[in-house]
Design a protein around this nucleic acid. Sequence first.
DNA 1: GTCTATATAATGATAGAC
DNA 2: GTCTATCATTATATAGAC
Lengths: 195, 195
Amino acid sequence: MARTQGSHSDITGPRVRDAALSLFARHGYAAVSMRQIAGAVGVQAGALYNYTPDKQTLLYELMKAHMDELLAARGGEPWPGDPMAALEAFTRFHIRFHARRPEAVFISYMELRNLSPENFAVIEGLRKTYETQLQDILQRGVAEGRFAVTDARITSMALIAMLTGVNTWFRDKGRLSLPEVEEIYCDMVRKAVAV
Amino acid sequence: MARTQGSHSDITGPRVRDAALSLFARHGYAAVSMRQIAGAVGVQAGALYNYTPDKQTLLYELMKAHMDELLAARGGEPWPGDPMAALEAFTRFHIRFHARRPEAVFISYMELRNLSPENFAVIEGLRKTYETQLQDILQRGVAEGRFAVTDARITSMALIAMLTGVNTWFRDKGRLSLPEVEEIYCDMVRKAVAV
DNA sequence: GTCTATATAATGATAGAC
DNA sequence: GTCTATCATTATATAGAC
């Protein structure tokens, strides 16, 4: 923890975000103080303000980065043309992506109400963009007579709620491996929308 | 708001709990102050301590009451003997019960981490008792060859996550009525576990 | 870039008058 | 049972030294 002038700017920033991510996930945004975050990083509270203008922006940037990563993770690659294949790809992608980032996922749906109205609008827009991808897959399947879904919007929300629920119990060294979990959920999702 | 000595004990108590329920749901336990709750009730902060020993107990009692209501709502009536009928009954019950209590539901799964360890253990036990009811229905269906479910525990959590997700978007005067919503979800649940 | 020190405001909870 | 007043603590954020 040697403190040399001007030598920590690129390393302390990420450490502040990491500490905030972990603490917000564990105790909640409102329950975590800037002093706690500073303590986890190993600096004094005042030093945090070199990296964020305020606590709210710190939360927003964590959530924004998470949503950007989610939307960029597939690198613009489109979902398979076959609706059932696309649905399976989406299911596996969603479970895998979210299982690897439990803290960011937890924050991103627990702390929505602690965002300022402007920040909330941005995050909500990104979330909706993601949900629309599944909705489109479902609608395509309905149009091709492959899926029996009366309301694609509601079904997409129902499936995403189910898939994200994996994070409430999944642990890396648990009874089931991630591929096993994917298999179980793929099965349920496929059957749930099938004709 | 006339304040007559000794005349408000039975009415102020429920009002304190109602105000706390509403404020905790909207802003989160950690973000709500005792002064805010008192203001919503129309008393000074000190008066709240006639009804709760502290803020933590106030949260715990809201969650405890919600879980007790959930487990008592069917009045000990058992689920139908036919597994598919039982599954449908559970699905409709869950959606209906939770749709009527959005604030208590929201608190009960958002504020778990703000419970003291002892209080958490109690609530978690009640939650598990409820989940086991669905798990038992699924296992019975598997034993009778009616359901294709590889892991009843995980499937029960997946289904409950999906059903509780209704609360994130359902509004009383929205596009869909509650019976319509029940129908859509019954359909998905039935198909998801069918052989 | 980080420190110490501080301004300013709010918090949970209690004491004692009425 | 509620009020006013207050204690002790904590909070976010800023100022200025180094």
